[in-house]
Simulated scan of single mutants.
Amino acid sequence: MSEDPLVAFTGDRAAAELMRRSLRAVADDHADLPLGAMVREVLAGRRDVRDLATDPDFAEISARGMRAQEEAWAALTPEERTEQVRLGEAYLAGLDEELGS
Rank of each mutant, 00 (worst) to 15 (best):
R20S: 02
F9P: 08
R21H: 01
E97Q: 13
A15Y: 05
E83S: 10
L87D: 12
A15M: 04
E3F: 15
T10G: 08
L6F: 03
R40C: 02
R21V: 00
R13N: 09
R64F: 15
L33S: 00
A44F: 04
A75I: 03
D29K: 03
G94T: 07
D12F: 05
T77C: 03
G36P: 00
T54S: 00
E71A: 13
V39K: 01
M19T: 07
R40F: 04
Y91P: 02
E17Q: 11
F9Q: 11
P56K: 05
A15P: 10
A25N: 03
A74S: 05
P56G: 04
P78I: 05
S62F: 00
A72Y: 12
E79M: 10
D57P: 00
L6W: 06
D55L: 05
A8M: 03
A90V: 11
A74C: 10
E83F: 10
E83I: 08
F9H: 14
D48A: 09
A25Y: 00
R24T: 13
F9M: 12
D12N: 02
D32K: 12
A72E: 10
R46L: 05
E41W: 14
D29M: 00
E89W: 14
Q69C: 02
D48M: 04
S101F: 15
E89A: 14
A25D: 13
T77H: 08
M1N: 10
L6G: 05
R24K: 14
A27C: 06
L95G: 02
L43V: 03
L43Q: 11
L33R: 13
I61K: 01
R81E: 04
A93W: 00
L18A: 10
E98W: 04
A59R: 14
A25P: 06
T77L: 11
A59C: 09
A68V: 12
